[in-house]
């Protein structure tokens, strides 16, 4: 609550400074103008195809990134062969700023949706891979031994011990993954696209439109916060066995 208030106070100060003519509205347009721009974007319906493009790319990247990252993480954790094969690649990908791959994806996959999904996916995959790969090593050995002495084989170990304990690990990196997925989609559009919030941003930049830029930034922030909230609820539900739910963001 206090944090929300301080944010509000900051916006008010900004508004006041602009009203007093102390900041140049061309560079730092006052919040009410940004809000009006945002309103216009929706009122004219202009923003919908762009929102759709960005969301499709980010959510596809997120979904497949989690699935692929999770599967590769499990493979590497349980098979020394795949671990030798995957770990160096993932470490390398983890070490570089992965957005530098954006131009390459445009060359390979064109300026359409595929290149944005690919960038968003590659950002998410590495994150989830390490969450799962590391998570398997953190599994409580007492639980494994318990299920084994009750007669459980691989199936039961995976189902009753590994997957639930990995869920906790993966959920904690999920919020970071959401941010990554949007980074991938927007940066991809920034590099080359005909639609999307990134494309609009790049347009705003080329026309020196700070108002539009800020409106788009606000829009992305709002949607990511919304997703955080949804994932927070998911987390509270999936981890209800925990002593205290760590909801919110």
């Amino acid at each position: 609550m206090r944090r929300a208030l301080s944010l509000f106070a900051l916006l008010l100060l900004w508004e006041a400074l602009a009203a007093l003519g102390l900041v140049n509205p061309l560079y730092a347009p006052p919040p009410h103008q940004v809000l009006l721009t945002l309103w216009d974007l929706f009122a004219t319906g202009e923003v919908w195809p762009h929102l759709q493009a960005t969301f499709t790319a980010a959510l596809l990247g997120l979904f497949w990134g989690i699935l692929l990252g999770g599967a590769l993480g499990l493979l590497a954790a349980f098979s020394p062969f795949f671990s030798d094969l995957l770990e160096p690649v993932m470490l390398l990908l983890n070490a570089i700023p992965r957005v530098i791959l954006a131009p390459l994806f445009v060359i390979w996959l064109g300026i359409g949706l595929a290149s944005k999904v690919a960038l968003s996916l590659v950002l998410v995959v590495v994150l989830i891979f390490f969450a799962v790969y590391g998570g398997v090593k953190e599994v409580d050995p007492r639980l494994l031994e318990r299920v084994r002495t009750l007669g459980g084989g691989r199936y039961w170990l995976l189902r009753e011990v590994y997957l639930p304990s990995l869920t906790a690990w993966v959920l904690s990196s999920l919020k970071v993954a959401v941010g990554f997925a949007f980074t991938g989609a927007v940066v991809g559009e920034f590099v080359a696209a005909s639609r999307g919030l990134g494309y609009l941003l790049s347009f705003a930049q080329s026309t020196y439109n700070a108002r539009l830029s800020l409106a788009l930034v606000a829009l992305v922030v709002l949607f990511v916060l919304l997703l955080f909230h949804l994932f927070g609820r998911l987390e509270a539900r999936l981890l209800r066995w925990r002593p205290k739910a760590q909801g919110g963001f």
Binding site: L143, R146, V147, W156, V161, W241
Partner: peptide, 23 residues
Amino acid sequence: FQEDALLPWRTARENVALGLRIR
């Protein structure tokens, strides 16, 4: 075992049923 080794994500009933389900 010496230590508790119940599955933290399963209820007491589910924990007791686990061995039976495995069988």
